[in-house]
Write a protein that binds this DNA or RNA. Structure first.
Lengths: 330, 330
DNA sequence: ACCCTCTGTGTAACCGGTTACATGACGCCC
DNA sequence: GGGCGTCATGTAACCGGTTACACAGAGGGT
């Protein structure tokens, strides 16, 4: 037995579909009698409106597409939490799509959103602006998070990676560290690249010697990086990882090598995932949930309006903990 | 300018919508010439098919609805990761909806899924079976995770909370602990209730004295519970928290009170979130991602088929770390 | 009695796809 | 040349809602 439709309800209530629709949507130009007959028929049939059909005729889905890369645990949950909080306040649902894989696959993922959602939030730190702009369904309000910008006219939210990296360099300098190492994220990832470039630059300005290695934003790669450094007997007294995950891996490797943190080596990360607080990791705090929330707020504001406003920059903040100072805050 | 539709493409290619549709869907009964004309028109117009309209006529959305309660960071990301992995392997998207709030709100959230998704995964540990069954759109394949079951004929996946709690009791007994405390999750939450009941029972069987306090699954409540115990001078040498979050809070409170873990008090949690490994917390491992994955696999299997198969029980596993044994594994 | 307004309701077109069925062209075989 | 099968294509109905517009009947004013 197929599900009941509005026509079934109309038949049962001996009314037209128009009247049923009016009742269901709370219009006031309906008699009390009709209202009751409809409610009864709905109850008897167990009728639930078909949201897809509704969307089609209203040209409005009440859903927002969220396209994210493969994110690591806490970062993912935080950003989605922020979006969801704001979305459900406005009666929107989130349609999730992961962006693992090739640009082709990415383009497909974006296209398949057309007609399903009223707007799109895209986070694709590994794609360049052209591919992305070409892949976005034209005419669908979209907002980009941390994308290689390229001056395209899309609305975007960016994280001030440079400011974060500079803050770490400042901190290392203040601690009197001289031989600094940076474990960068994967090349081609905009966050990784921006952080690395800004950090390198900041070290140069402060006359700190800076060595750069590459990881992939995963914990294990931070560990490997430190093992390599120790093997090659490269001397260093401070380490800045491109994200907290790698910093945590680095911490483990340092400790198993018998090096004291922060005495021998000061360690800092980036993101401030909840784990960082528990491990006492100095890091650059990104208010992740807030980032997601802002993306949604701006997207909703632009839906309906022709308003594809410009950029928005989120400033992060250094949080000093025990991996760089013995008694921080004391 | 409105977006292009299939009719615009047809007009431009001087073909009928039927032919265009056939080309777009890769049917083989189309001439090479038509194929080219369509591709060209598509390119020129920047046409992207309207997924909503497609769903309506196919009665198939390629989306799965996921309704979750307010979950804590890592648990949320892990379970969604598991689902997403499986979903994108089969070309499905996930439509997310959070279930904060009253049963009324919950019912609305579930109903609004009809016509948007091909199936539903519901996790609602705080709702009872009747409310839930009544709120589910009839005729929509659904699978419940860890719901108060009540023998309704729905497909479900359950976590064997009792087995986990018993394993902890066994472990405490083997360690020679006698005065045990359990910090339970919020009453009414099925996981919290099952764990507490099973643990109490297991302690009774093993003749361990067991005191039960209530928290809310958040870190702070674990902390508070321990503070209360210490204030009231209640003696205890082992603590089992209803989840890892609370165990972590408890750890902090114990340490600030100057109690040694595990010497003075052994501590165990439940879930095995990534943080647990980093903090050396003994816990009951739930393969969270796998749980999500299985839910999706079973749901997809039942779509199309009339197959509303029965329950599935996931057995957790005790992971011993340094909050209960000085050198675990040694 | 007439016209006008107002209210409640129904008919049918529309949203943008898919597809059953009809059609017309072509080639083949007897 | 007639009958038939095959193939590419077009026409129009359909999915399940919304809503512009038409309309009937009641009530009120003159």
């Amino acid at each position: 037995m197929a599900e009941a439709t509005i026509r079934d309800v109309a038949r049962r209530a001996q009314l037209s579909v128009a009247t049923v629709s009016r009742v269901l949507n709370g219009f006031d130009n309906v008699s009390e009698q009709a209202r009751e007959r409809v409610s009864e028929a709905v109850r008897e049939l167990g009728y639930v409106p078909h949201a897809g059909a509704r969307s089609l005729s209203l040209a409005r889905t009440n859903a927002i597409g969220v396209v994210l890369p493969d994110l690591h645990g806490e970062f993912f949950s935080e950003i989605v939490r922020g979006m969801d909080r704001e979305a459900s306040r406005h009666g929107y649902l989130l349609l999730l799509s992961n962006l693992h894989g090739s640009p082709d696959h990415a383009a497909f993922a974006l296209r398949t959103m057309r007609g399903r959602v009223d707007g799109l939030i895209v986070m694709a730190p590994h794609l360049n602006a052209e591919d992305l702009s070409a892949a976005l369904p034209p005419g669908l309000p979209s907002i980009l998070i941390n994308t290689r910008d390229g001056g395209c006219s899309r609305a975007a939210i960016h994280l001030d990676n440079a400011a974060g990296a500079q803050a770490v360099a400042d901190h290392f300098e203040a601690l009197g560290r001289k031989r600094v190492v940076h474990v960068a994220g994967p090349a081609g990832n905009i966050d990784a690249d921006e952080r690395a470039a800004a950090f390198r630059e900041a070290c140069a300005v402060r006359r700190l010697h800076c060595e750069v290695l590459h990881g992939d934003f995963e914990e294990a790669s931070g560990q490997r990086a430190v093992e390599q450094l120790i093997e090659s007997a490269h001397p260093f007294d401070a380490l800045f990882a491109g994200n907290d995950n790698m910093a945590i891996g680095a911490l483990q490797a340092l400790r198993s090598a018998g090096l004291a943190v922060p005495e021998d080596v000061a360690v800092a990360g980036f993101d401030d995932i909840p784990l960082a607080r528990h491990l006492g990791l100095t890091t650059v705090r990104v208010r992740i949930a807030e980032l997601g929330e802002r993306a949604l707020v701006r997207l909703l504001a632009s839906i309906g309006r022709e308003d594809l406003a410009g950029d928005e920059l989120h400033a992060p903040e250094l949080v000093v903990r025990s991996t760089t100072e013995r008694n921080p805050g004391a």
